[in-house]
Structure formats: C-alpha cells, structure tokens
Amino acid sequence: MTAHSSAPADVKPGRYLLAALGRDPVSCISLAMLTTLFLCAALAPWLAPYNPLSINMSRVLQGPSLDHFFGTDGQGRDIFSRSMFGLRLTIMLGFTAIFVGGTIGTLFGLLAAFYPKTDTLLMRLMDIILSFPAILFGLAVAAIIGSGTTAVIIALSVSTTPLVARIARGAALMVLAQDYVSSGRAIGLHDWTLLRRYVLPNCVSTIVVFLTLRLGQAILLGASLSFLGLGTQPPTPELGTMAAQGIGFFFFAPHVTLIPSVTIFLLVLSMNILGDSLRDILDPRLRS
C-alpha cells in the first residue's frame, strides 16, 4: 500500500476559519467591529467613565462633549457609560436566549428525526409556536410573570426553539440516511450513544451556523421588546430601553435615542455579515 502524504484538511479548524475570514475585507471589518463592541461590553465596569445609574440633574440632555463622549440623557446620566452597560445586557440577553432555545430546539429536532413516531407531534407543536409572533409571546410572558429580563429571555428562547428544531431535524435526517449511522446501529450502540456520538457531531456545524445568524435577530427582537417596555425596566441600562426613553426629547436631543439605536444597528449588522461568511465557510452543503 502506498500511503500518500496526509491531506491538507488536517489544519486546526480555528486557524482555517480565521484564514478564510481574512480573505474577505467586509468580514474583516465586521470582525473588528464586533470585537470592539464585545470588548466594550465585557469591560464596561472597568472602562465606563461614569456610574451608569448616577443621576446628575445639572447636566441634563447635554450633547456630546469631551466630558461626556455621547452626551447625557434626560436624567443627566452619561450615555457612553450607559451604552456600554446596555450593550452588555443586550448581548447577554441574546446569547442566553440563543443558548436555551438552541439546546431545546436541537434536542427536539434530533428526537423528531430519530424517532419517527414522535416526529408529527413534536414538529406540529413547533409549527404552532412558530405561528405566534415573538412580540406576542413577549406580551403574554410579560403579562404572566411581569415585565423584566426573564420575560425577554423566555420569549426569545421560545421563539428560537422551533426554528432550531426544524434546522436540526433536517440536518439529522440527512445524517441518519448515511450508512455510518446504520453501521453504529449494527455494532449494537444504544440509541442515546448513537445520537450523541454519531448524529449530533455531524449536525452541529449546520446548527451553529444557523444560531449565529439567529443571534442578530434575537438581539434585535430583545431590544424591540425592551423598547416596548416589556423587557428591562428603567433605570437598568439596556439599549432598547434607552432608545425608548429618548423618544420624548427626540426633536431637541436626538442623540439620546440615536446612539443606542446605532449601536444595536452596528452590532446586528456585523453579526449578520459574520454569520453569512461563517455559513459559507462551514456549511457542508455550500462547500464544494
């Protein structure tokens, strides 16, 4: 047997990913933008020049200046500091919801694909959930447990679950059709081991790609819920809530609303662009 030198596909997946991203300038800018935003969010307690909650009635609705980079809001709070803390909360909301919804959705999708008997029941349930707008869910949850961060997370998770379940089911069905799954069954693996060791690892890249694309939407949705007053309650800084608070002064101090809005915009935009390029790189169906 002649053994040919190992194939180039042996490089570390992380490095391969970065190299692939590096070839596209738009992705590079998005990655830089996203990194900055994430750093701001993560380091908010150390970087923020002011306490985001401290009120200073002598400096109300000031425009951007050297003292306050982004100006101050209706209660004289520093918008720069509040934006950093708001970003932190917004991102955290999105991630938690994606994590919870992604996990439950993956579980449902895999079960539906693996046990055809549960398929109809699970997927019809998902269809029912999918037929409610997420905003309506937020309203319902807020009505039951009261407005707040928990309500937003529940609403976002519930509305993410059926989408993930569909994607996971499709990916799992494709994997289940492969002979290696039959081969695992033929050596006598338990269903659970088969799912965990054979099906899940081969679906995971498809699901992760979908989740990164969904993250942007979830963040936008979370901010919208907060904007409507269903989410985080003032004075806690959250980008959606902050944007809502500035509406009253929009005509003479637009920056109070615009700054958190633009932050959300940049965050979601760069996430979407990165999610797209990630999909191009990772999705096996798009790879040649």
Binding site: D179, S182, S183, A186, G188, Y198
Partner: peptide, 23 residues
Amino acid sequence: VLRAMRRKMQIVFQDPFSSLHPK
C-alpha cells in the same frame, strides 16, 4: 438481547465514503 447479539452479526456497506463516521 439484540444489542448483545449484534456481536455475532456485522455488516459492510457499499459506499466506503458514507459508511465510516467522518469524525
């Protein structure tokens, strides 16, 4: 019982490109 019996019976598939777990 079936799981235990699988030791006694095995299968080799047609397509060697889809019959081995890629990871």
